[in-house]
């Protein structure tokens, strides 16, 4: 279903959910949960947004049934650790590539996806200061390196 423009802010989290459907269903579930909660705050009034959010909720409930016995889904503290570990793993991969001077689409995507997953961590509560800094740095780095490569410059 097409994403209504009012919900544009969650489109990348939903794409990350789709990309992880098979690879890591727990990541996919929490990306959708974050998108659902954020979408409800963005706009649950206009009919097309409400329709979209109802579909997303249907998806979440069926994922919940499929994954219900997974501790990462049934216990928030386990889910929190799962998402945080995954986000930091992506961040470290990208950071290592950056420090080694290896700039490519994959590492840009890893920086950006790690920042999205740090957004998702907020479903479990306030982000730590460290994760807020990580998210800011990862988003800035992804944008900076992307622009450098687009302009044919070497990132510093």
């Amino acid at each position: 279903m097409a994403l209504p423009p009012q919900l544009r802010a969650i489109q990348h989290h939903l794409r990350t959910a789709q990309e992880h459907e098979k690879r890591d269903p727990v990541v996919s579930y929490y990306c959708r949960l974050y998108a659902m909660q954020t979408g409800m705050k963005l706009d649950s009034k206009t009919p097309e947004c409400r329709k979209f959010l109802v579909k997303l909720m249907d998806q979440l409930e069926s994922m919940k049934k499929e994954l219900g016995d997974n501790d990462s889904i049934s216990q928030e503290v386990v889910g929190n650790a799962h998402i945080e570990n995954y986000a930091l793993k992506m961040f470290l991969y990208a950071d290592n590539e950056d420090r080694a001077g290896r700039f490519h689409k994959n590492m840009i995507k890893s920086f950006y996806s790690s920042s999205l997953l740090l957004d998702v961590l907020s479903v479990f509560g306030e982000l730590s200061e460290e994760n807020i800094q990580h998210r800011k740095y990862a988003r800035w780095k992804a944008t900076y390196i992307h622009n450098c490569l687009k302009n044919g410059e070497t990132p510093q």
């Binding site: 949960l33 909660q37 009919p47 409400r50 109802v54 409930e61």
Partner: peptide, 27 residues
């Protein structure tokens, strides 16, 4: 129609909030 539309909208919003709360409570 305006008021009916509004009450349908808010009923659906409430239902979504309840489903979300239920989903999270079961975690």
């Amino acid at each position: 129609t305006g008021s009916v539309g509004t009450s349908v909208a808010s009923a659906e919003q409430d239902e979504l909030s309840q489903r979300l709360a239920k989903l999270r409570d079961q975690m």
